[in-house]
Design a protein around this nucleic acid. Structure first.
Lengths: 265, 265
DNA sequence: GAGTGGTCTAGACCACTGT
DNA sequence: CAGTGGTCTAGACCACTCC
């Protein structure tokens, strides 16, 4: 077994048994090289393993610390039921309760919101989902949200609509209607303005390491995973009307799905 | 910007644009050091970034390759409905169709199954879930499955039951009844033998990098995430009767959850 | 045996943080 | 300023794979 693996195993054991409690500072790199009788690069390789596993966190100029688990924001499909119920409420009520607030438990005023609109030709997979030719213009809306109290983004969303369909209500094409506050009532209300009722939402959940760009956008630390949800919304006739890619920081998110089974006769 | 970041960015661009297609071999490390005019450790740092992102894969003694995306096994809560329906079928039918087969589309004979039973004192979180005192003996059952055709495990599961409850049917305590083939009809049938009917299943989904031990157990490669599902099953009276921790390789799994919304009046 | 990636060393300098 | 982690070098040897 390699030296760096032995060191990583030893430190991991100390962390998981609580010998090195969460939040504690590890000895400095030079101290650890002396302790384990290895060169600095070798020691750093051991630390990089633990960093990749999310066990420790290095703070430049300060020290290396045992990471403390983050409070997780729960996200359930209940939000979609609530969003649908809100569609026919008066605007004032729609405005005060949005989907983001459902998830986070934060109030409307605590959330910083940003939206950016763009038009893109449909890729293979998106064209297939919408059942339109590849290259069909899609309205691509990019949303992000962050709490004003906490320092990190809550999510990053790319939402796709067929542009010609969305254009039936020109207000839907203008990002200005979602800046600085989101459209009151969310996407389901937006679609209702062009006669669309969402009947089914399917979420496809995957997870992978973030790219460096995603790490920066979501301000994720090393040793965390990115949860990706492809959300496909279909109307009452079974036609796909919206596709969203939702990116969530894996160390701060928990998805909750409830299945109710039919009772035996 | 650091040299290794420039190199990683350059190679990442070539991969994502298709200039370096999936499956292609990268130039050798010595070639790349010459090309980018850097030392070997610096170049290797650049490659380690891309490996952590899951973009490339090094094969010792052969070369470094652009990774090809894996076929994902879909997993939906539909399995739980099917499992419940099967409980009252005759054993022969139960045996030929198990939950693992539902997920993978593989037939009964293509799956290699292993089970190991153990008794553990309840931890804080498990005790809270079962509403029993901390330290109460729990039956901990560890399952894993792999396809006989493919080479990698499909999942790793720890299933917990209160030991005294399970002991009402001594067959449930004996791993021999699940080796080499799983209990016909799965956990829901097992619980039915002691008068328990599952009414609700809640899945809590999180994702994180695997530890080195988990990487080995599930034969995951670098640059992949671990999907963790804590599955809590409650009976018709709302009592928690089973808790499972399900671990899935993030690069080979897709979770699919469908939400049907109530129509507007 | 030739070529590949994996490990390790000793030492240097830089960048960040706190005092 | 001192102490910390971040980057980089030149060079060595090992382990694996293929011919």
């Amino acid at each position: 077994m390699a030296k760096y693996e032995r060191i990583a195993d030893d430190l991991r054991r100390m962390i998981t048994t609580g010998e090195l409690p969460a939040g504690d500072r590890l000895p400095s790199e030079t101290e650890l090289t002396a302790q384990y009788r290895v060169s600095l690069p070798t020691l750093r390789q051991a630390l990089s393993v633990l960093r990749a596993e999310g066990l420790i966190e290095a703070r430049h100029g300060i020290g290396t610390y045992v990471r403390t688990p983050k409070q997780r924001v729960k996200r359930t499909p209940e939000r979609y039921h609530e969003e649908k119920k809100r569609v026919h409420l008066p605007e004032e009520q729609r405005q005060r309760q949005g989907a983001v607030e459902d998830d986070t438990g934060l109030s409307f005023d605590d959330i910083e919101f940003s939206a950016e609109f763009d038009t893109e030709p449909a890729s293979d997979t998106l064209a297939a989902a919408f059942e339109v030719p590849v290259g069909t213009p899609l309205l691509c809306r990019t949303y992000s949200a962050r709490s004003t109290h906490e320092d990190k983004p809550l999510h990053l969303i790319h939402s796709y609509l067929v542009r010609d369909v969305a254009a039936q209500n020109p207000d839907l094409l203008d990002a200005a209607n979602e800046t600085p506050t989101p459209w009151p009532g969310g996407t389901q209300h937006q679609l209702s303005t062009i006669g669309i009722e969402i009947a089914t939402i399917v979420e496809h959940v995957t997870a992978r390491p973030p790219t460096t760009a995603e790490t920066e956008l979501l301000e994720m630390s090393d040793g965390t995973s990115l949860i990706c949800i492809r959300k496909v919304s279909t109307d009452t006739k079974g036609k796909t009307v919206e596709v969203s890619d939702i990116f969530l920081p894996g160390d701060r998110t928990e998805l909750v799905y409830t299945t109710k089974l039919e009772p035996w006769a």
